[in-house]
């Protein structure tokens, strides 16, 4: 993930709607990478979550993912014990992860979350971008 690529995605979003669909393609590989290297630590490789003394919610077949803002805000702000990833992940990585879980694990939501939409809700410029 680099800034060039990030800016490329933003530019594509701004230029045309057809470019959005094109930008969504490399997204899938990126989304899978974020999911398998970070998210599955808690939500598990099959996205079915887990139950112990407490539980990690399943992302598989989860109707709460119908609104793309919901998983976005979870990742940006964290929730209860789940930490915020706003400083750890770049905006396009967050978008890619959201788009990945919303189109995999039994979820079929075609509308795409853009990097610009993630940037708009970030509390401030993330440390990642300041580098």
């Amino acid at each position: 993930m680099n800034k060039m690529k990030m800016q490329g995605v933003v530019a594509a979003v701004l230029l045309s709607t057809s470019a959005v669909a094109m930008a969504a393609e490399p997204d899938a590989a990126e989304g899978k990478k974020v999911y398998t290297t970070i998210c599955q630590g808690c939500h598990m490789p099959d996205a079915k979550g887990a139950v112990g003394a407490g539980r990690y919610p399943a992302l598989a077949n989860n109707p709460k993912l119908a609104a793309k803002q919901y998983p976005m805000m979870m990742i940006v702000n964290g929730s209860r014990a789940m930490p915020s990833f706003a400083r750890m992940l770049a905006p396009d990585e967050i978008a890619a992860a959201v788009n990945y879980v919303r189109t995999h694990f039994g979820n079929h939501y075609p509308d795409v979350l853009t990097t610009a939409e993630v940037k708009a809700v970030l509390p401030q410029k993330s440390d990642y971008e300041r580098h």
Partner: peptide, 15 residues
């Protein structure tokens, strides 16, 4: 042992 996978703590300590 990865602490987010520990069934009785779901993480290491409160941050």
């Amino acid at each position: 042992v990865g602490w987010h996978r520990v069934p009785w703590t779901l993480g290491c300590f409160g941050t």
